[in-house]
Amino acid sequence: MVIKTEGLTKKYGKITAVEGLNLEVEEGEIFGLLGPNGAGKTTLISMLCTILKPTSGRAWVNGFDVLKESGKVRKSIGIVFQAPSVDDLLTGRENLAMHNLLFGVPRGIRKQRIDEVLSIVNLEKRADDLVNTYSGGMRRRLELARGIMHHPKILFLDEPTLGLDPQTREHIWAYISDLAEKECMTVMLTTHYMEEAEQLCDRVAIIDYGKIVALDSPQTLKNKIAGDVVKIKQKVRDVETIKKLEYVKNVQEKDGLLYISIKNASKHLQDLLVHTGPIDFVEVRSGTLNDVFLYYTGREIRESEGEGGFWERVMKR
């Protein structure tokens, strides 16, 4: 077990950000934390990487206690924070060089590592410019480069691809998968992007109000809950009849619309529409983790935004 928590809890005054969390992550796994704003994802990661002390409970990272052996934990991990933490008045390359020194990358391979990660995030041309001349996405890419540069045993990524263009995002997914496989690196990442969780993660924990509400592989979660989703607006509301149909797994109501999860839309749609009666609107799509999330929490994850602070924090000293 590379990451293990037992009753891990963090309270901020009255707010319980993380509540009695029990979690186990295997070596080499890419593990996703999925949850809406304020669910406690960042708080959990901060405790695991030793910059925040738990209120109660325990956690081990790479076999080391995060409270008692924080030094050893820090030697085993890499982290990309949600809020930008690259140094504005240094160049990209200088930021990376500083990281090499701080994380004890052997002298002989430092230059090579810097060039390697710069090319992965496509920043070679801007490497010698000051970071305060970078765009928001370029800073994000630099942080990613920095987080993976020392090839940590465990990599924490807090919304790694927030604000990145699709091309860079896929580039980075590929690199992370590759690194996880080659170096047997374990990755724990948080995200609001469903596709990111679906494409990248071996397992996903859905977390809401500091608690895990579901945990499994993205495929299993989707099969269990979602299948296909039919979104309809009935002229006369009648949920009970629909719930009784044997191929219907779950019905959620939101903003006057019904989200009906069914096993196989191409087979059952016709029959379903017979039972719904007249409708104003219909849309059929295959289920996503968002539907799983909706099922467990009754809310949708806002897909497109992270913590509002990200862009505001990208500012000059």
Binding site: R74, A83, S85, L102
Partner: peptide, 18 residues
């Protein structure tokens, strides 16, 4: 204080140096 406010210090605080 500025370093902490703007999170520049996090990178250093999470590094494996005392």
């Amino acid at each position: 204080i500025w370093d902490r406010k703007l999170d520049f210090l996090k990178e250093v605080l999470v590094a494996p140096v005392s």
